[in-house]
Lab assay of single mutants.
Amino acid sequence: MSGNGNAAATAEENSPKMRVIRVGTRKSQLARIQTDSVVATLKASYPGLQFEIIAMSTTGDKILDTALSKIGEKSLFTKELEHALEKNEVDLVVHSLKDLPTVLPPGFTIGAICKRENPHDAVVFHPKFVGKTLETLPEKSVVGTSSLRRAAQLQRKFPHLEFRSIRGNLNTRLRKLDEQQEFSAIILATAGLQRMGWHNRVGQILHPEECMYAVGQGALGVEVRAKDQDILDLVGVLHDPETLLRCIAERAFLRHLEGGCSVPVAVHTAMKDGQLYLTGGVWSLDGSDSIQETMQATIHVPAQHEDGPEDDPQLVGITARNIPRGPQLAAQNLGISLANLLLSKGAKNILDVARQLNDAH
Rank of each mutant, 00 (worst) to 15 (best):
S37N: 14
V38D: 03
A40E: 09
T41E: 11
A44G: 11
L49C: 00
I54C: 03
I54G: 06
M56H: 12
G72S: 13
E73P: 08
T78D: 05
T78I: 14
E80I: 09
E80K: 09
L81F: 12
L85K: 04
L85S: 02
E86Q: 11
E86N: 06
E86F: 09
K87I: 13
N88S: 11
E89A: 10
V90I: 11
V90H: 06
D91N: 12
L92D: 00
V93G: 07
L97S: 06
L104V: 10
P105L: 08
F108S: 05
F108K: 02
T109Y: 04
A112E: 02
C114R: 09
R116V: 02
E117G: 11
E117K: 12
N118T: 14
N118V: 12
P119L: 03
P119D: 04
A122Y: 04
V124G: 06
V124N: 04
F125W: 12
V130P: 12
E135T: 11
T136G: 10
K140A: 12
S141M: 13
T145K: 02
T145N: 04
S147V: 03
R150Y: 00
L154K: 05
Q155I: 15
Q155L: 11
R156P: 13
K157A: 13
P159W: 05
P159D: 07
H160P: 10
L161D: 00
E162F: 15
G168T: 01
N169D: 06
N171I: 12
T172Y: 09
T172N: 12
L174F: 14
D178E: 11
D178C: 14
I186D: 05
I187Q: 04
L188R: 02
T190I: 15
L193E: 02
Q194N: 06
R195P: 03
W198M: 15
V202M: 12
Q204C: 00
I205F: 09
P208A: 06
P208E: 00
M212K: 03
A214C: 10
A214Y: 02
Q217E: 03
G218F: 00
G218N: 00
A219V: 13
L220H: 03
E223M: 00
V224E: 05
V224Y: 04
R225N: 04
D228P: 15
Q229G: 14
Q229I: 05
L232R: 04
V235P: 01
P241D: 07
F253K: 00
G260R: 02
P264E: 05
P264W: 03
V267D: 00
M271A: 03
L276H: 01
L276K: 01
L278T: 06
T279D: 05
V282R: 01
W283N: 12
S284Q: 15
D286V: 11
G287V: 15
S288D: 14
D289V: 13
D289S: 08
E293L: 06
Q296R: 13
A297V: 05
A303F: 15
H305V: 10
D307V: 09
D307L: 00
G308K: 01
P309H: 11
P313H: 06
Q314P: 11
G317H: 02
T319L: 01
R321P: 07
R321L: 11
R325C: 05
L329T: 15
L329S: 13
A330C: 15
Q332C: 03
L338F: 02
L343Q: 07
L343D: 14
L343V: 15
N349V: 10
I350F: 15
L351Y: 12
D359S: 03
